[in-house]
Write a protein that binds this DNA or RNA. Sequence first.
DNA 1: TCAACCGGGCACCATTTTGTACCCGCTTTT
DNA 2: AAAAGCGGGTACAAAATGGTGCCCGGTTGA
Lengths: 113, 113
Amino acid sequence: MHQGMKKKFLSLNERAAYHSLEDVVGCKWSAGVVAALAEGVSRPGELERYIPGISKKILNERLRKLLDYRLITRSEIPGRVPHVAYALTGTGRKLARVIGQLKQLDQAHRESR
Amino acid sequence: MHQGMKKKFLSLNERAAYHSLEDVVGCKWSAGVVAALAEGVSRPGELERYIPGISKKILNERLRKLLDYRLITRSEIPGRVPHVAYALTGTGRKLARVIGQLKQLDQAHRESR
DNA sequence: TCAACCGGGCACCATTTTGTACCCGCTTTT
DNA sequence: AAAAGCGGGTACAAAATGGTGCCCGGTTGA
């Protein structure tokens, strides 16, 4: 695109970025999962109980996706019973803060209605 | 919840907030629409051309939803031919900035793969 | 006169996403 | 011994979302 000329359309990079955004934040329950992790809830069973309404299947899918996007890590806790802990990565914490801002926008919106 | 005690689950308010978030940002094409508006694209026809792949139906639905959440305004441009202009509100601009941050997170993620 | 543009609607269909219910192996509790 | 808990998987059904194609009335252009 020539300097000074207005863009004619969203570039492929931008479109890809928004699709990734949709892929991560756009799915139902994603924001809640990230928020729960940000609050220190780290084990699958805990997350399931902490987020009423979420199904085990969807929780697992969200965790897998967040792992794939490197927004969380997964570690196995030693012991006879298989315990696992998920945690936000640095990028994941940034996402959590962004989600917090979105939440505040919603709050402001609510209060103005 | 007693002070000092850990929350047992996401509160109803938080859940509602995340559902609203999903309702606004979570839908396909929403981020792209907000981004386009942030870049000064304001008329429906322009938006449709600016965001390749989006359908007229979905564009209209997104605009309606953004209006409902008071993230954008709609004004009719005087003239024989019905022209309309959408624009981000203050809150809408904040959302656009947040979306920009999410986009940057995605960029960082891409570069680390 | 017809086509294109303006902005917008809607029925129907296709696709995608989410939820349900059941399954697994293991350990611990009842 | 059975049930419950741990973490996780999958087939199928249900629900939700998005896209197509056509429709509208108006103005302008071919």
